[in-house]
Computed example of a mutant assay.
Amino acid sequence: MRFDLDEQQRAFQDAVVDYLQAECPVHRALKPHDQAAADFQLWRGLMDLGIGGMMVPEVYGGLGLGLLDLAVVAEPVGRYAMPGPFFEHALATLAITLAGSDEQKSKWLPGLVSGELRATVALAEGKGQWCVDSWTLEGDRTLTGSKRYVLHPEGADLIVVGLKGGRLAIVEGNAPGIVCTPLVSTDAGRQLAHVEFSDVRLEHLPVSAGAKVVDAGLVLLAADAFGGASQAVKLSVDYCKEREQFGKPVGAFQAVKHQLADMALMVEPCVGLYWYAAHQFDTDMPGSSEAAALAKSHISEMYPKVTRRMIEAHGGIGYTWEYGAHVWLKRALFNQAYLGMPQLHRSRVAAMNDW
Rank of each mutant, 00 (worst) to 15 (best):
W328V: 00
I317A: 11
Q343S: 12
E322L: 09
A325E: 12
Y338S: 06
Y323S: 06
L344H: 13
R346I: 08
E322S: 13
H314M: 10
A351V: 02
W321V: 13
A293Y: 06
A332Y: 10
E322H: 13
Q336V: 09
I317Q: 10
A295G: 04
S347A: 15
M341R: 12
N335H: 09
A337W: 08
R309F: 01
S347C: 03
R346N: 11
V306K: 02
S347N: 15
S300F: 11
R348D: 13
M341W: 14
Y303E: 04
A332F: 10
V349R: 02
P304N: 01
M310I: 04
G316H: 10
I299S: 08
A292G: 08
G340F: 04
A313C: 13
T320V: 03
R308D: 04
N335S: 12
L339Q: 05
S297H: 08
S300C: 15
A313S: 15
M310R: 14
G340T: 07
T307A: 05
E301F: 09
L294R: 11
A313Y: 03
G318D: 06
H326V: 08
N335I: 09
E322V: 12
K296N: 09
S300D: 06
T320Y: 00
R346L: 12
Y303V: 05
Q336C: 12
M341H: 14
G315Q: 01
N335A: 14
G315A: 01
E322M: 03
V306W: 01
L344A: 06
V327C: 05
I311N: 01
M302I: 15
W328L: 08
T307S: 13
K305W: 01
Y338P: 04
R346G: 00
A332R: 05
K305H: 11
Y319W: 10
I317S: 10
A293M: 09
Y323Q: 12
W328K: 07
W328R: 13
V327W: 01
A295S: 11
Y303A: 04
I299D: 03
S297N: 03
Q343R: 13
R308C: 05
Y323K: 05
L329Q: 12
